[in-house]
Simulated assay, not measured.
Amino acid sequence: MNGISYEGIVSPIALRKAYLCFLGPPGAGKTTLAKALAGKLKGDYFSTSTFLRSLSSQNPKSEESIHIGQAMAVGQNIEMHSIYGKILEAIDALQSDLNVIDGFPRTSEAMRELRRHILESGHLVIFHVFTDVETCRSQFYSKGPDNTEAVFSQRLKAYTELERPMLSSFGASIPIIDIRT
């Protein structure tokens, strides 16, 4: 994080609510940067993975909770329209004029939903955080014992097959800032 300047990031998006989404491969530093930016700019921080874990623990025997738990355990994206709605409701509940969202959206469908939802009331900026695969792998493993090679490989595959193409297809209509860590 040394050498990254936060000055000027919010000036182009003043006067309306701002939503800054951090996306990228597993272990690239999305969460570290998202939390730092939210803290520095006194914005709200929203972790998609923490929200999904909380959502699945509320009613652990429901089909939705089982689906979330199984998908997260193996590093798969969760592609249920009903969950996108719940994530958007949680994002709406953020109180700040500056909202930092970690890990959402990850698919083109989710991006369309988020864009349609947010652009009515605010600005959307995507921060694409990336680094080389070996650094990602090393950082991913350092996060805990549940982060296995299989989970890393699946999440990297999801990033490569879903998230990167999504970023390319929306780059003309949504500001995307690339950050190499």
Score class of each variant (00 low, 15 high):
residue 29 G to W: 05
residue 6 Y to H: 13
residue 105 P to C: 07
residue 17 K to R: 10
residue 14 A to P: 08
residue 172 A to K: 10
residue 67 H to F: 14
residue 31 T to E: 02
residue 174 I to S: 06
residue 99 N to D: 13
residue 114 L to Q: 05
residue 92 D to G: 12
residue 136 C to D: 01
residue 178 D to W: 02
residue 72 M to K: 04
residue 126 I to F: 04
residue 151 V to E: 00
residue 141 Y to W: 10
residue 149 E to A: 06
residue 54 S to L: 12
residue 91 I to D: 03
residue 127 F to S: 07
residue 77 N to I: 11
residue 131 T to R: 03
residue 113 E to L: 11
residue 123 H to L: 11
residue 155 R to D: 00
residue 125 V to C: 14
residue 36 A to H: 10
residue 87 I to P: 00
residue 52 L to F: 04
residue 47 S to I: 01
residue 93 A to I: 01
residue 32 T to D: 03
residue 146 D to M: 09
residue 63 E to I: 10
residue 36 A to M: 13
residue 14 A to T: 11
residue 101 I to N: 09
residue 21 C to E: 01
residue 79 E to L: 02
residue 148 T to A: 02
residue 125 V to H: 13
residue 109 E to H: 07
residue 138 S to K: 11
residue 124 L to K: 06
residue 17 K to W: 11
residue 141 Y to H: 09
residue 5 S to F: 13
residue 130 F to W: 13
residue 98 L to K: 08
residue 127 F to C: 06
residue 51 F to H: 08
residue 42 K to Y: 08
residue 17 K to H: 11
residue 157 K to G: 10
residue 35 K to Y: 07
residue 106 R to I: 02
residue 88 L to C: 03
residue 163 E to P: 00
residue 82 S to Y: 04
residue 83 I to Y: 00
residue 8 G to L: 09
residue 168 S to K: 15
residue 126 I to M: 05
residue 137 R to V: 00
residue 103 G to Q: 06
residue 114 L to G: 04
residue 21 C to M: 08
residue 31 T to S: 08
residue 117 H to I: 01
residue 75 G to W: 07
residue 179 I to R: 08
residue 143 K to N: 00
residue 58 Q to P: 02
residue 113 E to M: 15
residue 58 Q to V: 12
residue 67 H to P: 00
residue 66 I to M: 11
residue 96 S to K: 03
residue 14 A to Y: 05
residue 156 L to C: 01
residue 56 S to M: 09
residue 138 S to W: 06
residue 90 A to E: 04
residue 78 I to Q: 04
residue 149 E to G: 11
residue 22 F to I: 07
residue 149 E to I: 08
residue 42 K to D: 10
residue 37 L to R: 02
residue 2 N to V: 15
residue 104 F to K: 10
residue 56 S to K: 01
residue 112 R to N: 13
residue 13 I to M: 09
residue 110 A to W: 00
residue 154 Q to K: 15
residue 179 I to T: 02
residue 80 M to L: 14
residue 164 R to Q: 09
residue 78 I to C: 05
residue 139 Q to D: 03
residue 137 R to S: 06
residue 114 L to H: 01
residue 119 L to T: 14
residue 41 L to Y: 08
residue 29 G to C: 03
residue 180 R to W: 09
residue 11 S to Y: 14
residue 134 E to D: 15
residue 138 S to M: 09
residue 98 L to Y: 07
residue 132 D to G: 00
residue 138 S to Q: 13
residue 26 P to H: 05
residue 101 I to D: 03
residue 47 S to F: 04
residue 119 L to Q: 15
residue 106 R to N: 04
residue 107 T to Q: 01
residue 157 K to D: 12
residue 138 S to V: 06
residue 63 E to G: 00
residue 94 L to N: 08
residue 37 L to S: 01
residue 175 P to G: 03
residue 89 E to S: 15
residue 180 R to T: 12
residue 51 F to S: 01
residue 120 E to P: 10
residue 134 E to Q: 14
residue 173 S to P: 06
residue 16 R to F: 09
residue 30 K to M: 00
residue 123 H to M: 03
